[in-house]
Design a binder for these strands. Structure first.
Lengths: 264, 264
DNA sequence: GAGTGGTCTAGACCACTCG
DNA sequence: GAGTGGTCTAGACCACTCG
């Protein structure tokens, strides 16, 4: 019996509607986040977890597989898995929501609305949102700041049904993502195309860089669980302020290189 | 019995040292790639796959879980899973190897070596490769072309033991990745930082863009299965030729925004 | 040699989807 | 109501790692 192990891993009360393997994964995940299980340390063995929580080994393996997929633990093959040293923290919310991201970095997010109105969808926007070209959709242009420092300019178009909900939000301070969640509108996935563009004159002025300076551009199409598009966004970052990072594992989806389509 | 299903899915000879679930996953994956299972079409049910190939349902589920993780199939919950409409093809090899990527796009890759020598590791390189600063390491600067068109400039530093193997390769035409694989050196994972930079004068000339034009920069640290660093690379793409794409799913690792570290 | 994770089986119950 | 995938159990054998 490993006393330390037993102490580091709180015995869970496995009840309620949540599947056992998810409860187990959630429990282990928070043990890792709060430091009960430190980076580099071994995770309790599958047999131990099975005995401690009174679930079968299959259930334990299901929970561990989830944590592996999230990059939180690594190892195996006769060896005990260890808590991954320096995993990338990347909750989905922090990808879609600038506000959530800035707060997670200990900064105060804000936004300066440059434009917000109902405009006919361009061909690109119409294609992304699955509406006929020319359909009036809510479109927002915002300068986003963290602790008062400009980080990016976002141009977002919202799908019908989403734009109306956005219209009621405090766009200078509130988080669109959080407000939409209250309306039951949840982001489930996003496809993003990343490249670089020169700053236009107005963008350069808002961001405080020289005209033509390189900006990191991320074009994102976010969808709901059923695949319906929710928003399309063109975000342009100051690359000296924000960098994107990705951990790519063999046989796991990651970044794909693409030939650029047409011009801009 | 579903005749179509049985035809679309070749019965596998499940033998040899490969685990059954991997053989099954490989078989289904190639059915999807070759069009035997078209996008949007339902995958045979777990019970059918189990009966057809004579394996337990657990094994079938393990294979399907892998394909799900790769983004090739989607769906579930009482519904049959379907072949994902328009999944991102992203074999790991095509991320690390420009040659493999170009060929997969139907283009002929080549490289123009601008420099290749043993040079003392800078602080950045030393940190990435886990060697003391100043250690001599093999460093390569190459212009990469597809069908003769310049796509990016790569600056790569190789870990001790890897650089020696690279020295024997035809760098103008061969694939470093493939050649290293023959030496038993396999890339397992990579961490990448993505931003944008202005083209320096020499880079601009090689790539055929104006000086100061925006380039998409990807800095990559590739590691072996045991975590040892293999290479560190700084790749700068013409963004009008190459774009990066990523599918991000909720609760799956993906892109993380980071505050930029120091200057360049 | 003891312990570990990787693999595989057989069986069970359930919520959900569909016609 | 029939079929589906989601979940869970109990048990087994193996290659691998470690001291």
């Amino acid at each position: 019996m490993n006393k330390l192990t037993t102490e580091a891993t709180t015995v869970l009360r496995l009840i309620g509607p949540e599947p056992l393997h998810r409860q187990l994964a959630d429990g282990l995940r928070s043990s890792i986040r709060t430091g009960g299980l430190a980076a580099g340390e071994p995770v309790p063995s599958e047999a131990e977890l099975s005995a401690i929580h009174g679930v079968s080994r299959g259930t334990v393996r299901q929970a561990l597989a989830q944590l592996r997929a999230e990059g939180l633990i690594a190892g195996g093959r006769g060896r005990r898995p260890v808590v991954h040293p320096g995993p990338l923290a990347q909750p989905f919310e922090e990808l879609v929501s600038f506000s959530a991201w800035a707060r997670s970095m200990g900064m105060e997010p804000s936004g300066r609305v440059l434009a917000f109105d109902l405009r006919p969808a361009s061909a690109v926007v119409a294609d992304a949102l699955d509406v006929p070209a020319g359909t009036p959709v809510h479109q927002l242009v915002r300068l986003r700041l963290a602790d008062g420092v400009p980080m990016l300019i976002e141009r977002t178009a919202f799908a019908p049904g989403v734009g109306e909900a956005v219209a009621g939000i405090d766009l200078e301070h509130g988080s669109i993502y959080a407000a939409l969640a209250e309306h039951g509108i949840r982001f489930d996935a996003a496809r993003q195309a990343i490249d670089a563009v020169a700053a236009s004159r107005p963008d350069a002025e808002h961001l405080g860089v020289g005209r033509g300076a390189p900006l990191l551009r991320v074009r994102r199409r976010s969808t709901a669980a059923d695949g319906r598009p929710l928003e399309w966004s063109d975000d342009r970052y100051r690359p000296d302020r924000v960098t994107l990072t990705i951990d790519q594992l063999a046989n796991r989806p990651g970044i794909a290189r693409r030939l650029s389509q047409g011009g801009r």
